[in-house]
Design a protein around this nucleic acid. Structure first.
Lengths: 152, 152
DNA sequence: GTGGTAGTCAACAATCATTGTCAACTAACA
DNA sequence: TGTTAGTTGACAATGATTGTTGACTACCAC
C-alpha cells in the first residue's frame, strides 16, 4: 500500500523533514515521464529554485531509493536514471541516443531459473535490458547509409 | 568460425598492427578468468610492461570490442568489465562486493517477447542481470547482524 | 636488410559523474 | 519562540574515461 502514497508522504512517514528542496524534487519526479537523469532533474529544479545544489538532488534521490520509493538504475549510458515505475518491467536502451523505454516484460518470467539454485547467491532483483537502436536512430542510420556512401 | 581464433589472430585479420602492447593485453584477457575491470588489466599489464599507459588499455579494449572479439559490459559497479565469454549467458552481480559471475541462462529465452514487436526498436542484444548478495557477503552480513546488534 | 609511411603509443590535460567535508541554516516539536 | 537534530550549498576531491599530440614503430615494398 505504500505505493499509493506520494513521494512526499513517504518521506514524512519515515521521519524525514519536508524541506522545500525535497518537495520540489519529489514533484519533479512525479510529473516527469520517462527516465530522467540526475542532471535532467537538476536542471528542472534550478529553473524553479536556482540555489538548488546538484549534491542535494543526489542526496534526495538516494534517500528516496533507500525508502524503496524510486529506483536508481544504471543502463550503461553514463550516470544513473530515476525509475519511478516500480511495476516489474524491462528496458529498451538505444545505443546511439541513450533513450530508455519501458516494456512490460516481467524480468522474473525469464526462462528456466532452476540453475540459479546451484549458485551460492541470494537474488534480490532481476533486470532485463534490450539494447539496440530506437526507431529514430535506426532511420537516421539508414538515411546516412543511403546518402553519402562513404562515411565510416 | 572467427570465434575459435585467438584475439591476436582476430586483430591481424582486421589489419591492425601486432604491437607488443596489444599482444600483452590480448594474452592477459585470454588468461584471466572472470570479468576483469580495465584497471585490473592495466595493473597486470604494467607489472610486465611498466610503460603501458591506461589509455592504451582502453583503446585496445575498444578495438577488440569493435571487432566483436570481446564485449565491454557495464553492470553498474563503476567502470566496465571485459567479457570474454561470448556464449549467451546472464550475470550475477553482488551489490556489496561487486563480484560478477556468469550463469548459463540464455537472455534470449526470456519469456514472451511478442510485445517487443509493438515497439519501434531494433533489438540487437539482450542482457539479464541478477542482483543480490554473493555467498560470502550474505554470510558476512548475517555474522554482523548476530554480533553487535546495532550497527546500521 | 633499409626506408617510407600509416598506424600506434605514452604523457599529459581535460571532462564527466559522483562523493566528501563542513559551517550555516531551518523544519519540527516542545 | 527557542532548541536542536537534520539538511543544505559551496567547494574540493575522487574515479573513470576521453582528447590531443609529437615521438615512435610495425609493416610493406624494394
Amino acid at each position: 500500500m505504500p505505493h499509493s502514497h506520494t513521494l512526499i508522504e513517504q518521506l514524512r512517514e519515515h521521519g524525514l523533514k519536508l524541506t522545500p528542496q525535497r518537495h520540489l524534487i519529489c514533484q519533479l519526479i512525479e510529473t516527469t515521464h520517462g527516465h530522467p537523469t540526475v542532471e535532467d532533474l537538476y536542471e528542472k529544479a534550478t529553473a524553479v529554485m536556482p540555489s538548488m545544489s546538484l549534491k542535494t538532488v543526489y542526496t534526495t534521490l538516494y534517500e528516496l531509493a533507500g525508502l524503496g520509493a524510486i529506483r536508481l538504475v544504471n543502463v550503461g549510458t553514463g550516470g544513473f536514471r530515476v525509475e519511478s515505475n516500480l511495476d516489474p518491467h524491462s528496458h529498451l536502451v538505444c545505443r546511439r541516443c541513450g533513450k530508455v523505454m519501458d516494456v512490460p516484460v516481467d524480468p522474473a518470467a525469464t526462462a528456466d531459473l532452476s540453475v540459479l539454485e546451484q549458485y551460492d547467491f541470494e537474488v534480490e532483483h532481476r533486470e532485463v535490458i534490450f539494447r539496440g537502436l530506437c526507431g529514430d536512430c535506426a532511420q537516421a542510420g539508414a538515411r546516412r547509409d543511403q546518402g553519402h556512401e562513404r562515411h565510416s
